[in-house]
Every structure is written in structure tokens, then in C-alpha cells.
Computed example of a mutant assay.
Amino acid sequence: MHTIAPVSDTRLRAWAVLARAALTPAAYPRVVLATRAVAPDIEDAADRIGALVAEPGSGASIAELAACDLDRAERAGAWLLTPDEPAWAGLGFDDLDSRDSRYLDAPVAVWVRGSIDPVSVLTRVGVVGARAVSPRGAAITGQIAGELVERGVHIVSGGAYGVDVIAHRAALAQGVATTLVSAAGIDRVYPTAHLEVFDAVAETGAIISEYPPRDGVEPPRLLARNRLVAAMSRQLVITEAGVRSGTLATVRWARRLHRPVLAVPADFGAAARGCDLLIGEGHARPVHSLTEVLTALGETAEPEPRHPLAY
């Protein structure tokens, strides 16, 4: 069960309208203006925006689609987390708000399967990296994620092939909550091969998505997801990344949000050259042991054994 502040059905539906409108290009500028100062007149803004037609020729209004979103989410065991709820402030999304055009805006609200409680109270570390991960990268990812979990650190990742799913599985193997930020609708599994991981994450932790039920995956959404992983993480650990890896986009977001970035240096293979690039350009700090990860977090006050990584 998730812990939420009492929110009226009217206000919840208003947030659902604005969340749906944020996905509609014609309505998006109005949504931004309406939610810059989350005010008592959020319902009035939703009434105005909700009357707009969602897509040319569709005939359905944004308000009608939003009502369907809430109904489908309930059937899927999901719910809408809004800025009205105490947990919102601790998730880091508000750090995305900026007049700087380099930043995307914070999500209006997010859909959740699972419980937000462990996500909102624990130290969170994003562990991300290559999809086509090497055996070395897989071993290092499992080691870092597993040992962080043992020390009470909450793992955040994107549920993708490679490093992402290994990090999630390392937490699940210990029966510990983890957070999966999805680029698909909250009732969808992407990649479909990770169905058991998505279901297990929802049991103990949370799946979070900006996208309502039935929404599919589009390339821009894969990149948009990166900003939420970065925002939710107190620091980002890159265990392996190629020089053209989408992981580098997550690093850019983390740096803009002033989140420390750590990267495991490459060996003689090409799979992790993106890590060397980040380190060489000063965008990430090299990490050789779990102790260095904990020290960067401020989680270790005195020297510990180094726990060297499995190179």
C-alpha cells in the first residue's frame, strides 16, 4: 500500500487531465503555465485545458482520455502520484524545473505501480549503463548494486537490457525494493522479456512512468526517461557504457542537476570506452571500489576495506 495525502476526486482528476495534456503538443504550453505555481485554481486550469480535443480528428477531449487513464490505471493496480502528496518533494523532480532551455520541465504527475514509500525515504543511487553489457560489466554491475543494497541504498534504473536489469535483479535477489523508471505506459512492460522483473519490482518497490495505461514506447520517451532517473538519484554510477551509449544522456542530466557521477574505468575492451571518455573529460569520477561509491555518497565516515571491483 502507498501512503498518500487525502486528495479529493475532483483534484485528482484535475491532475490526470494536466498529466494527459502534457502529452498533447497543442496543450503542453498551457499545462506548463498552469502548473508552474501549483495553486488552488488547478481545477479551473484543468477544466479549460480538458475541453480541448486531444488529437485532430479524434473527437475525444483531453478530459475524456484522462478519465479513461484513471480507470485503466486502477484496473492495472496503478495510481497517480501528484505534487499534492508529501512523497513528491523527496523524489527530486522539482529540481528539473528551470527557465534554462537546456532543461525539460518536471513531470506534471507520474503513474506508479507499487509503493512510493521506500523510494521516498531511502538514499537513492542510479545504476545505469550499456544494454549490450560485457561479462565484465555484468559482474561489476551485480557487485556494486548488490553491495549497495546490503548497505541500505535504494537502486534506481530504467529496466532496460544490460546494466539496468542486472541492477534491478541484484536488489530483488535480496528481497529489497528498487525503482524502475519506465518509458512505456504504466501497464506496459518494455522490454517485454523483463515481465518477471517488472512484476517483482512492483511487489516491493515502484515502477514509475510519465505515461498512462496503454501508451507505447517512442524513441523520444526513452531519452525523456533519463532525466527522471537522474533526478531521482543522489548520485549516478555508470558501470559500463559505449562511446555512443544513451547512458551518456543520463549523465548530462545528472550533471545539470548537480548529481555526482561515478564511472568504472574500461579495460582493454571497447564496451566501456564511454566511461573512459566521461572520466577523461572530467564529467565523471573514476571508481575502483565500493568504498569510493559510499564515500561519494557521504555514507561512510571512516576508512573501510576497499572492496575492489571484479576487474
Rank of each mutant, 00 (worst) to 15 (best):
P83K: 02
R285P: 09
L222W: 08
I207A: 02
V229R: 02
D105S: 11
I62W: 01
V149M: 01
G216A: 05
T179P: 01
G298E: 02
L277W: 13
V181A: 02
I42P: 08
G152N: 02
G242F: 10
L91V: 04
I4P: 11
D94H: 06
R169K: 10
R136V: 10
G137C: 07
A14V: 03
D47M: 15
P86N: 03
L236W: 00
A171Q: 05
Q235E: 14
G142C: 03
Q174V: 08
S157D: 04
P135D: 09
G282S: 12
A46D: 09
L222E: 12
R36V: 04
V108Y: 11
R234H: 11
R75P: 04
W88E: 05
H258C: 08
S289L: 12
I116K: 08
G59Q: 03
V237C: 03
P107I: 09
A73K: 10
G152H: 04
V176F: 11
R131Y: 08
M232Y: 03
I144F: 09
V121M: 03
M232G: 00
L33W: 04
I166M: 07
Q235Y: 00
G90E: 05
T291Q: 13
M232W: 00
L70S: 15
N226K: 08
P212Q: 01
P40G: 06
L180V: 01
A89I: 06
G57T: 10
I238S: 00
L52I: 09
E203F: 09
A130V: 14
V125W: 12
E302S: 12
L18M: 02
V38K: 10
A266I: 11
R151E: 09
P83E: 09
V229M: 01
A78Q: 01
I208H: 03
P260K: 13
T3F: 05
D105E: 15
P308T: 13
A34Q: 01
V287I: 11
A76Q: 11
V251A: 02
V38Q: 10
L81D: 05
L195V: 11
L262N: 04
L81E: 05
R11S: 08
D44P: 03
L96H: 00
A26R: 14
R273F: 04
A89S: 10
P260C: 14
R214D: 14
P135M: 04
S209F: 01
R151S: 12
P286F: 11
D47N: 05
V121R: 15
L122F: 14
D215P: 05
A21F: 04
H154E: 07
E150V: 13
I116Q: 08
G269E: 12
L297T: 02
C275L: 06
T35P: 08
V133E: 05
A184C: 10
D95C: 07
I49Q: 04
D215E: 12
E203H: 08
T10P: 02
E43H: 10
G59D: 04
T179R: 00
D84K: 05
L195P: 15
L290M: 10
V217D: 14
E43I: 13
G162C: 00
D117A: 13
R48F: 13
R13T: 09
A310F: 14
L18T: 00
T204P: 07
R188F: 02
